[in-house]
Simulated assay, not measured.
Amino acid sequence: MRGIQLSLNQTQKIRLERALEVLQSLSSKANNNASVTVADTIPVNYEDGVLKGHGTSELEGEVVATVCGVVERVNKLVYVRSLRARYKPEIGDIIVGRVIEVASKHWRLEINFSQDAVLMLSSMNLPDGIQRRRTAVDELNMRSIFEESDVVCAEVRGFQRDGSLHLQARSQKYGKLERGQLLTVPPYLVKRRKQHFHHLEKYGIDLIMGCNGFIWVGEHVEAKDILAEDQVNKFEQQNAKSYSSSTSLEEQEQTYTPLETRQNICRTANAVRVLAILGFNITVEVITETVGLSTSLNLDIHEMLGAEFCVLVAESEAERRRLVKKG
């Protein structure tokens, strides 16, 4: 558990410490042989031959850990996986980023990595949906697809020879994200899973868990070619500016997010913030449980960020893991 900075009274401090002690004891029992700290000895079988990897060193004939983490073994390779490392991209990762530059034939995105990522025009579906070569006209219309400050979901394609990270968005599930909140959490709290796209039907929202620590909480969008609609709308606005000024009130209201949905987005976003403050692994199951706890207590959205609710979430998670351990 990382250091928690909350305005707690004496009673809340004691309750939180007890909950964290329970969580730590359950975690240490589950990973007693795998967890190591700096200078801990890692048991190995020298007869089979050992390859010392990241986070390990040899001292007085023994393999010791140089970082805190979990011991991993791949054949003869032994290394320590740091639990709080920075985001390390892998091919196929689902990431969420923000466009910071529209350049020649590509967009540059901030993805919470040591360097920016590149999304090439040739690595994404065009709004017309036709598979063809990109032309000079397509390059001129790049800003009508993505522009600066747009939030985009994409997939890691790989590293180029110059060391740059390249992305791709060749599916309708990727693209621009609108009507929601972008949250930033430590990347180690978001584990790689088979599914990073979640539709919470009960709340009418979408949840995208970026492997890079960027989490998107927004209004649910049906699977359709959103880019095509966006580009058509922008071209219509450019060709008929007078029409936009005379848009009827009914048409404007269709673009608004309902109040209940906005409240659900804010409540879910605060649940993610609370879990990040406590240092818990962020999964869709834990998020929904935290949201359910806040609604069962009839808490206002802003009250979720208070010290009392953080303590209640820690106690609830400790009890849940204890029941799972018994089961």
Results as ranks from 00 to 15, higher is better:
Ile4Thr: 05
Ile14Gln: 12
Leu16Gln: 02
Val22Thr: 12
Leu23His: 01
Lys29Asn: 10
Asn33Met: 07
Thr37His: 15
Thr41Asn: 08
Gly49Ala: 07
Gly49Trp: 05
Gly53Arg: 06
Gly53Asp: 01
His54Trp: 06
Gly55His: 05
Thr56Val: 13
Leu59Tyr: 14
Gly61Asn: 09
Val63Lys: 06
Ala65Asp: 03
Thr66Val: 15
Cys68Val: 15
Val70Ile: 15
Tyr79Met: 07
Tyr79Asn: 01
Val80Gln: 06
Arg84Cys: 04
Arg86Cys: 11
Glu90Ile: 09
Glu90Trp: 05
Asp93Trp: 06
Arg108Met: 09
Leu121Ala: 04
Met124Leu: 14
Ile130Leu: 12
Val137Lys: 15
Asp138Leu: 06
Asn141Arg: 11
Ser144Phe: 12
Ile145Glu: 08
Phe146Cys: 05
Glu147Ala: 15
Glu147Ile: 15
Val156Trp: 02
Gly158Lys: 12
Ser164Thr: 11
His166Ile: 09
Gln168His: 15
Ser171Glu: 12
Lys176Met: 11
Arg179Tyr: 14
Pro187Ser: 13
Lys191Asp: 00
His196Met: 08
Ile205Cys: 00
Asp206Leu: 07
Leu207Tyr: 05
Gly210Asn: 02
Asn212Pro: 04
Trp216Phe: 11
Glu219Ala: 11
Asp230Gly: 06
Val232Gln: 05
Asn233Phe: 05
Phe235Thr: 00
Phe235Asp: 00
Ala240Asn: 14
Ser246Phe: 13
Thr247Asp: 03
Ser248Cys: 09
Leu249His: 11
Leu249Ile: 14
Pro258Cys: 10
Ile265Ala: 03
Ala269Ile: 10
Ala271Cys: 08
Val274His: 02
Leu275Tyr: 06
Leu275Cys: 08
Leu275Arg: 04
Ile282Val: 08
Thr295Lys: 15
Ser296Asp: 14
Asp300Ser: 09
Ile301Arg: 09
Glu303Lys: 12
Glu317Asp: 02
Ala318Pro: 03
Arg320Gln: 04
